[in-house]
């Protein structure tokens, strides 16, 4: 497609810089989101319609694992837990 060719062939440094600027803004905002989540009560919607709540601790930088506390599982509370991000479809919290 013309768009693909445009993307591949535009090797000018100005478009690289523009892409870096956009990526940087998006990433900063995401890192900010994770820092706001810290200590919040977060609801996790997971595969197979599993829905749990926990206090958010931290994410690793590649967004592969979430470290949480007081995880309310269907079988009781797990004091400390790691969630695999591949198991999680979405998570939400109130500000």
């Amino acid at each position: 497609s013309p768009r693909f060719i445009a993307l591949c062939c535009s090797s000018s440094s100005s478009s690289d810089e523009e892409e870096q600027r956009l990526r940087s803004e998006l990433r900063q905002r995401f890192l900010w989101t994770l820092s706001v989540m810290r200590d919040k009560l977060v609801q996790f919607d997971m595969h197979e319609r599993v829905r749990v709540r926990a206090r958010f601790g931290a994410s690793d930088i590649d967004v592969l694992r979430f470290q949480v506390s007081d995880l309310e599982t269907p079988l009781g509370v797990q004091r400390e837990a790691l969630l695999r991000c591949q198991d999680v479809l979405s998570c939400s919290f109130e500000l």
Binding site: E25, R27, R29, S92, F93
Partner: peptide, 27 residues
């Protein structure tokens, strides 16, 4: 609010009257 360029996760903010603003991250 943003899309994480590493995981492509979308961060949505929703502000409704008489409710606290909520944030949803879709992986």
């Amino acid at each position: 609010f943003t899309v994480d360029p590493v995981s492509a996760s979308v961060v949505l903010v929703s502000v409704q009257e008489n409710e606290r603003p909520s944030v949803t991250v879709i992986l």
